[in-house]
Amino acid sequence: MSSVKKVTDHPVEDAYGLEIQEGDVYWMFGKTVVSDLNLKTYLIEEHNMECFRAME
């Protein structure tokens, strides 16, 4: 993830109430903060995106 920017003024929590800690990766959708841990949930619930898992 070479395009990840390190910031000192990170948000306190994401849209799901998860506390953003130092070193966490989070995404900004306009003014909505979404932790990397909640990204799949956010995309499915808020943007009706489908999620797939590749099988062997």
Rank of each mutant, 00 (worst) to 15 (best):
L43C: 09
M55F: 08
K5P: 00
I20P: 02
L18F: 09
N38M: 04
A15V: 15
H10A: 15
L39Y: 13
I44D: 00
Y26V: 05
M55W: 03
K31F: 05
L43T: 03
D36H: 13
D9G: 05
T8I: 07
M1G: 15
Y16W: 09
K31A: 11
I20F: 01
A54Y: 12
D14Q: 01
E50L: 13
E50M: 11
V12Q: 12
F52W: 11
W27V: 11
M28D: 02
T32K: 10
S2A: 12
N38K: 04
D14C: 02
R53D: 08
V7Y: 03
M49F: 11
L39F: 12
Q21E: 09
E13G: 08
D9W: 01
H47Q: 15
V4S: 04
D36K: 10
M55T: 15
S2I: 11
L18P: 00
V7D: 01
F29N: 08
L43F: 03
I44T: 11
Y42I: 04
V33S: 04
E13V: 06
T41I: 07
Y26K: 05
T8Q: 10
L18G: 01
A15C: 15
E13S: 15
L18A: 13
V4H: 02
E45C: 01
L18R: 15
G17D: 05
E19D: 11
G17F: 02
P11E: 02
I20K: 01
I44R: 08
V12C: 03
K5R: 15
L37I: 10
V33E: 02
L39R: 13
G17R: 05
V34W: 04
V7K: 02
L37A: 14
D36M: 07
L18K: 15
L39E: 06
E56K: 14
V12I: 12
H47S: 07
V4W: 08
Y42E: 04
P11H: 02
L18V: 13
S2R: 12
F29Q: 05
N38F: 01
E19R: 15
F52L: 09
N48R: 05
V34H: 05
S3T: 12
P11S: 04
T32P: 00
N38R: 07
K40S: 12
S35L: 07
T8E: 13
T41F: 01
D36A: 14
V34F: 03
Q21M: 09
D24Y: 10
H47F: 10
T41P: 00
I20M: 06
N38H: 11
S35H: 09
V12W: 00
D36R: 10
S2L: 12
L37D: 13
I20S: 03
W27R: 08
K6V: 14
H10K: 11
F52A: 06
F29T: 06
L37S: 12
F29A: 06
W27D: 10
V33M: 01
K31G: 09
F52K: 10
D14H: 02
E45K: 07
W27L: 07
K40D: 13
V7C: 03
H47W: 07
I20Y: 01
S2P: 09
V33A: 05
E46L: 00
S35R: 06
N48F: 02
V34S: 03
F52G: 05
G30K: 02
M49P: 00
C51P: 00
D24V: 05
L18Y: 10
M1R: 10
M1I: 07
V12E: 14
I44F: 01
C51W: 13
T32H: 01
E50G: 14
E45S: 06
K40L: 11
S3V: 11
H10T: 00
